[in-house]
């Protein structure tokens, strides 16, 4: 994986107050390796190429090991998408603290997108083929961005620095814009990061639209 490190992902592991047994530690470590390998395979091959066999091969484990930890491929895929979503929404929650301005919310979102660009673009491109729970994770993440945008827009409108508009339209325009560039990143920024290359322009376009 070239564009980012998998250490970004925290892996949704249970925590206990007491020291876990060796068996529990081994089980958790195997689960972590499966998720890590799954994210690598998805980044390289997409979800379509992320079969349970391919993920097992990438860890050097027997195929059946996958099903000890995930009852179905859909459950594994949902966990991979959830992991990306958790990492991105946690970063947004950290960055958009207090009462951020619209430019600050857009910057925080662009930073999270840039950090997870390769995997998140895969999620978007294949969203309609993903299990329902995985697709729901994407919409939950987008709603979190919409929520922050709406709050920042309300503050800007109260200060007279943003015009009246439908806040749902504002969020959907921004989400559509960024998703379009991510889904076609090979055309907008061949071989590079589309957010690094085009993010500042996208932010300027949105701020132009809402200027009073």
């Amino acid at each position: 994986m070239s564009a980012y490190s998998l250490s970004t992902y925290s892996f949704n592991m249970p925590t206990t107050a007491t020291r876990p047994s060796q068996r529990t530690r081994q089980r958790d470590a195997t689960r972590r390796r499966l998720i890590q390998a799954g994210l690598r395979v998805v980044a390289a091959e997409g979800f379509a190429g992320a079969s349970t066999a391919a993920i097992a091969r990438a860890t050097g484990k027997a195929h059946g090991t996958v099903f000890v930890h995930f009852p179905t491929r859909a459950a594994l895929v949902a966990e991979l998408v959830a992991e990306v979503g958790r990492a991105m929404s946690a970063e947004l929650a950290q960055l958009a603290s207090g009462a951020p301005t619209l430019p600050e919310v857009l910057d925080a979102h662009l930073l999270a997108l840039k950090k997870h660009e390769q995997l998140y673009a895969r999620v978007l491109c294949e969203a309609s083929t993903l299990p329902k729970s995985a697709r729901a994770q994407v919409f939950a993440l987008q709603s979190g961005i919409a929520f922050r945008l709406r709050n920042a827009w309300q503050r800007a409108r109260a200060q007279g620095t943003a015009r009246d508009l439908d806040p749902v339209a504002l969020s959907n325009i921004w989400i559509s814009l960024t998703n379009h560039y991510l889904m076609n990143r090979d055309l907008f920024a061949p071989g590079g990061s589309v957010i690094a290359q085009c993010g500042a322009a996208l932010k300027a376009q949105l701020l132009d639209l809402i200027r009073p």
Binding site: S10, N12, S89, A93, Q94, Q137
Partner: peptide, 18 residues
């Protein structure tokens, strides 16, 4: 729950920070 980032709701996944 995430262990490196802020905690998320065990029911809906909403990140809980404040």
């Amino acid at each position: 729950m995430s262990t490196e980032h802020c905690r998320s709701c065990g029911s809906c996944g909403f990140p809980m920070r404040i």
